[in-house]
């Protein structure tokens, strides 16, 4: 299978005042196949968001290699950004613009315009239940609705790779279910989706492949069944395994 993402020996250390250096990512290696839904899981401070920030060109790695869609993130960050779309962890919206203008503005950055852009925006508004609010400014919407705008933007364009950092924050269960269906459809159409989440049921339902990291290193890797098989508990849920592994397993060489 062709790789959409390849990470080898990735390290990131931050200098912090008073505490010296902090290692957020510590020699991480993994690859993600094209068209997969890949879950990057881990407890708070495990290094998930730092890894995502390196892959999305927001920060540079201290060492190691990271490639997205075959392009080195350090050598050609703009080339990577042309092939990705990112839903960042924080709420992010043009609050003074209407919902529709948020989508139209975003589409232009990806080279969309005219009738094509307008059709895509209309479709996204329908898919995310935003038609009735299309003319409202984002500042007048709740956090959940602003999150809808963020995820709608990700599905407005057709980049090969999608990064979702806690995409379902603030979404109601009905919308979340429909967004998960949309994500599966995107993956079936060949888009690679990388997500982080603390809601393990979400990962269990969506991901073809999971990497659990802790202290910046991989500690478990595989599909849901493979991960569950690592548990000492009978009929363990993904959450059981997650807790067991992140509390008991020393950072090891499960990376591949």
């Amino acid at each position: 299978m062709q790789d959409a993402i390849r990470v080898a020996g990735l390290c990131k250390t931050f200098a912090r005042r008073g505490t010296g250096k902090v290692t957020a990512v510590d020699g991480l290696s993994f690859s993600v196949g094209v068209g997969q839904i890949f879950g990057l899981l881990g407890p708070n401070g495990a290094g998930k968001t730092t890894t995502l920030r390196i892959l999305t060109t927001l920060i540079r790695a201290t060492s190691g290699v990271a490639e997205v869609a075959g392009i080195d993130v350090a050598r050609d960050p703009l080339g990577v950004r042309r092939r990705i779309v990112v839903v960042v962890q924080e709420s992010a919206a043009e609050i003074f613009l209407t919902v529709r203008d948020n989508l139209l503005t975003f589409g232009r950055f990806h080279g969309l315009e005219g009738a094509d852009l307008r059709q895509r925006v209309d479709r996204a508004l329908e898919q995310f239940g935003l038609v009735a609010d299309a003319s409202r400014k984002a500042m007048d919407l709740s956090g959940g609705f602003r999150r809808r705008i963020q995820v709608a933007k990700a599905l407005l364009v057709k980049t090969p790779v999608v990064f979702l950092d806690e995409f379902s924050t603030g979404m109601d269960p009905i919308l979340k279910r429909s967004v998960m269906d949309l994500l599966r459809e995107e993956a079936r159409n060949g888009r690679t989706i990388v997500l982080t989440t603390q809601i393990l049921g979400e990962a269990e339902a969506l991901c073809d492949d999971i990497l659990i990291i802790n202290h910046g290193r991989g500690i478990a890797r595989g599909d849901v069944a493979t991960i569950k098989a690592l548990s000492t508990i009978d009929n363990a849920s993904l959450e059981d395994v997650f807790v067991e592994l992140t509390q008991a397993v020393a950072p090891g060489a499960v990376d591949r």
């Binding site: 950004r81 960042v88 992010a92 919206a93 609050i95 990806h110 080279g111």
Partner: peptide, 14 residues
Amino acid sequence: DNGIFYEMLTYPIS
């Protein structure tokens, strides 16, 4: 403050 700054840094623009 609106969070859009960091998102924009992932847009296809130098």
